[in-house]
Nucleic acid binder design. Structure first.
Lengths: 142, 142
DNA sequence: CTTGACCTGTGTCTTACACACAGGTCTAAA
DNA sequence: TTTAGACCTGTGTGTAAGACACAGGTCAAG
């Protein structure tokens, strides 16, 4: 399989496949014409990589996992350990996004009814300058 | 105020203040010794920038807003319009994170009870290879 | 034989800073 | 007075995961 075919097969882009190939995560064979061909083992490896990405592993994580496996060792303990880390990070980011989203929504609501004002030397935009996050008194969890 | 003082004042880093200064979002005065000093107007501008960042505006957005205001025009319409865009983007990312988080949690649960397996030529790690997202039959919204 | 679709390598761009580095400046203590 | 330490300067590089650009080679079809 050639790069574009492979990408289409899995709903990704040729650039992504080339990126993984640059990083030696994929190791296609080179034909005489200079083209890269991906044999079945590399095809399933791409599938693996894409699955891992969907599960929140970084490309660097995947490199470590693949390295481990290439030594013949079961990568499962590493995989379990990594996903715990990534999940914790994701949880943090998730909470941050939750807060951000609330701020944005609150701001949008407040602003719909406020009039425009010209800027001054100390004030760029009173909407932002005077925005007050609405206290969600305590929160429901913990 | 000097750069580190200013950063501390608002709970940010000197590097961040320097970054905004590089971008001309902040325009300190230069003293004879070469040091930059931030007068009150620049101090309130930093406050503005940090507030805007917290509301999800990109640094580039803020540049546009500041440009608009520096022409004496009210930036409010631009600000309202931009936040709608950013909120829509945030909403998308939020849903993506929600799905990712679920996938990660499901995977973690599935994996706790699965044994380790050595890799094969076509399988790097059976945990990832055989992971199946748990259908949340339809979902509650829409 | 030419057109167009594909391929190659390589390099740059993106975000919002963090960090490094060489060298200048200020302050307080020795 | 010297010197140590903490600050400052400009500039350049690194980050994640690709996207995009570009010059040039290859291939199938008309």
């Amino acid at each position: 399989m050639k790069v574009t075919e492979l990408a289409k097969e899995f709903g990704t882009t040729p650039d992504t496949v080339r990126y993984y190939t640059r990083l030696k995560l994929l190791n296609p064979t080179k034909s005489e014409n200079g083209y890269k061909y991906y044999p079945p083992t590399e095809i399933s490896r791409l599938k693996f990589i894409l699955s891992a990405r969907q599960l929140g592993f970084s490309v660097s994580d995947i490199q470590h996992i693949v390295d481990e496996a290439s030594l013949g060792k079961a990568a499962c303990p590493l995989v379990r350990s990594l996903i715990k880390e990534r999940l914790a990070e994701t949880e943090k980011q998730f909470q941050a996004m939750l807060a951000l989203r609330k701020n944005m929504k609150d701001a949008l609501a407040q602003w719909e009814v406020k009039e425009d004002k010209a800027p001054t030397s100390t004030m760029v935009c009173h909407l932002i300058d005077s925005f007050e996050p609405i206290e969600n008194n305590g929160g429901s969890h913990e």
